[in-house]
Each structure stands twice: as C-alpha cells, then as structure tokens.
Design a protein around this nucleic acid. Structure first.
Lengths: 248, 248
DNA sequence: CGCTTTATTGAGAGATATCAATACTTGTGG
DNA sequence: CCACAAGTATTGATATCTCTCAATAAAGCG
C-alpha cells in the first residue's frame, strides 16, 4: 500500500477526467476547487492488496482513480462472496458509514489507485455545497439500486442469464467510461465471477463456452468480445438499449 | 390511499415512540422539533395498496409508522422479486434518489401508515443539522449493508439456511422494536417469502415443515414460534448473539 | 356455507453442484 | 530461453438440491 500526496497538478479533481462519473458531478468549477482541498491523498495498490478490511474503522471513502477492485462480504462461518466490482470513478467504502466500520473487504484486482476522501471532512463540505450533498445521496441511492438489481439476478435468473446480465453490465459501465462496449479484458477470475453470480466456477466456464459456441461472444482467457449484443440482452431479460430499431 | 395532516399531537416526531429507530436518532430535542415542521403529512394504506410505483417521480421518502410494506423490483420481461420487507421506523423510497424516480414498487402487506418526508425540504434541513445529515447517511449505508447480506444469502446459502436467516432477521428487527423475539405473525405470504429468498413457494413450505418437525420452530399458518434459536442461528451461519455462554 | 385463495405434500424432471481428470497460463529459476 | 511448478480454466460424469407439475387440504371472504 503506497500513499502519495497529490500536489502534482493532474491529481486534482478539477482536472481529473473521471469527474463526470465521480463525486464532482454537477458541481460548479469553484466548488470542485473546494473538493480539491478535501481529496489530497491517494493510495496505490498492487494486485491482491487490501484497501480496507471488514471491521476497520471508517475514516474515509474512496474513489477509484484507475484499476479495478472487488468487495467481498463474509459470513462468520467462513463462507464469503464477492458482492461488487469497482471501476474508475466509482466510490468504495460506503458500507462503513452505518456502523462506523467497514462491513466488507476491498481488494485490488490489478494495480490500482484510489483517491482518499476523508469522511468527516466530506460531510462538512457537503453541508456547504448543496449540489455535492445531493450528488452523494445519488451515489448512495444508486449503490442500493445496483445491489437490488444484483439481488434480482441471484434470486430470479438462471446461471446463463446471470452471466449475460453481468457481461452486459460490465460492458455498459466500461462504455460510459469511453471504452468500446463490445471488447474488453475481464479483470476478475472465473472464481470471482462465480462468487459474484452465486454459481460455481465450473458453471461459469461451461456457460462461457456455450455462449461462444452459439456465437454470442468470443473469449480467450480473459479477453472478451461481445458479438451478439441483442442475443445477450435477450438472455438478460432486458431489451438492448442501443438498438435504434424499435421492435416492441 | 388516505392522506392526513398531522396536527394531532401524537403524530409529531418529537413524541413518536419510533424515534429511536427512525430519522431522529441522535438528535437534540430542539432539532427534532425542526423535523416536526418537515414531516407533517401521513398516508394510510390498506392491504395491497401501493405507496409508490416504479417510475413515479421522487417527491418524498417515507418512514413506516405502523404496519408492514414490501418493496419489489422488476425486470422488463415481467419477472419480479420481493427485495425488502419494511417494519415501523424503517425508511422507504431511498432508491428513488439516484434517478429522481423510484426503481421499485412499494406495497402494504397489511393496513399501514407512513410518514411523508418531503425530500427536497429534507435535504435543506439536513444541511442545517449535522447530526441529521449523518443519521441519513447511516440509514442509506445500512440499507446497502442489509442488501449485501441478502446478496450473500441468495448467492451462497441453501434454501434451508436462507429461510433460517430470514426468520432470525425478522425476529431481531421485531425485538429491537420491543416485541418478543421468539413469537410473532408473519405478515407476508409464502409466495412473498419465496420471492424474497429466491426459492419457490413449495420449497418454503417444505422447509418450514422440516423446521417444525425437527423442533426448531412451531408454525400454524402465519403464526410463528421460534423454539430453538441456537439451532436456527447455526443454520444461518452465525452464532447466536443472545447467548450468554460463549462457546467459540 | 360455498367459493376463492393460500398452503401443504408427493412424484418426477431439470439445473447446477460436486468430484475428477486434463489442459492451459504464468511466473521463476536454471 | 527453456523447463518446471503453481495457479487457473475447461470438460466430463454423476449426485443433489430445488423446481415443476399435480393433487389435496386448509383458510379467508362474501
């Protein structure tokens, strides 16, 4: 875990390209400047390193600057499950606010960097900037909605459908960040995908092979190409939002 | 849907017995008085009535005054799932903040009443009362944690374990509200329990019968008595928090 | 009191898990 | 730069849990 102070110019929120996904959404430039004073530290994590662990006292929430992290949630009997993957611009650590300590483990899936947002100072600032306050509420609310969508997936969909929905969700989030939406590298192992989707690794593997056979995707190791987006969307139970031709 | 204005004295937050679970937790009496001016309306719902529907614009969040509600989340293809049950003092409608409209349906499971918290006015007030702001963040964060615990249940536990965890969760929440923790009436149908747990109604029924046979519970229709709490906790994958004798 | 809804129980089918063997990747040291 | 080891992924065969279909029973409601 490698801390750095962000006096270098491109480390400021005011010039960060992630601004449109991150905390400063909607803020006037003068207000973003105030966030610059709040978010001055970053952490560099190597693959496999923990950003925080279950039980650590909440001091900060974090936004991903680059890289990918997973969060996992455990039962006392040792079973645990991946509950989220976190891309640049997404906020981590929100589950620590309720009890004052984190409820999950956050672990880097690749070399990553996160910005440190001191939580107490942030609450102070949010009271001064209504737009920031509202944006934070939106972030918390969307986290709830995302988890609820995930619940629907685990509770109501078959393995194949869950996997399709997962791949499309990744695709959408990457596309929103300026990447192509149909070709990317998975940063997580099959085990982690299975854990996230509530299925076994062997099933993940079989379903991916089946998708490839039926021409929905191409996959080599972790490099993925989505070929038939419509087909995937149909499996996932939603219409393709990108389709210009409306056929309902 | 029956609106009422709450000029009657016992409708104020300052005298409401639910204060210790609801929005005003931690507030000084003078601050609770400010909330009184914010929360002036309530809604009475009959069994089966909607408090809000997916897509309705967010105007308010709601706290349950009495009764029980469920929230359900749907896929475009029609499938939907119960994602939460809401007891007195719990806040509903938080999933509407992210996009400005609710993402779920909220439906009363019995005659219920909820307090209406105008969302915009609430944000204004939260900026003036730091403790209120923090309490709201705690509520949002706990909702995330609750959903994540639910995810772990759907993703990693067998039907029997999910059901045990569900019954214990209800028991704990009722106990926190002053009810006995081992005897209560289920307000939801087997179908709703099954939907919430991601299993079929027949499985719910079978597991309940199995629990009864093995002496874990007694159940007649919806009236439930938890007999062997330790046994249930063991199934649910956590130690019984009430046990005074520590045996780990 | 009969009708409709809700819940229970049984038998068989199906999806996914588990166990096991093999193949492929990646990293490391000679 | 190759060879081996350790981790990761694929594929097959069988087991198991839960679902589905079906029949019956019980409860709520007018």
């Amino acid at each position: 875990m490698n801390y750095s102070n962000s006096d270098s110019p491109n480390s400021k929120c005011s010039v960060c390209v992630l601004g449109q996904f991150c905390l400063p959404v909607g803020l006037a430039p003068s207000d973003v400047a105030k966030i610059d004073t709040l978010v001055k530290e970053r952490v560099r994590l190597q693959k496999g390193e923990n950003l925080y662990r279950h039980g650590d006292p909440l001091s900060s929430v974090y936004s991903v600057r680059f890289g990918t992290l997973k969060t996992e949630f455990g039962l006392q009997d040792g079973r645990q499950q991946v509950i989220g993957f976190h891309l640049p611009g997404e906020i981590l650590g929100l589950d620590g606010i309720g009890e004052g300590h984190y409820q999950s483990n956050a672990i880097a899936l690749e070399e990553s960097e996160v910005c440190i947002i001191r939580y107490e100072a942030f609450e102070d600032l949010a009271r001064q900037i209504p737009v920031l306050q509202h944006q934070f509420h939106r972030i918390l609310s969307r986290e709830i909605t995302q988890d609820q969508r995930h619940l629907l997936s685990l509770g109501s969909m078959r393995a194949e459908e869950r996997l399709a929905a997962f791949l499309l969700n990744l695709s959408q989030r990457l596309a929103a960040r300026g990447y192509v939406n149909n070709e990317f590298d998975l940063r997580m192992s099959r085990v982690e995908i299975g854990s996230y989707l509530g299925i076994q690794i062997e099933t993940v593997s079989r379903m991916l092979s089946r998708f490839a056979e039926s021409g929905l995707i191409q996959i080599q190791q972790r490099h993925l190409k989505l070929i038939d987006m419509d087909g995937l969307y149909e499996l996932a139970g939603v219409p393709n939002p990108d389709r210009t031709t409306q056929n309902n």
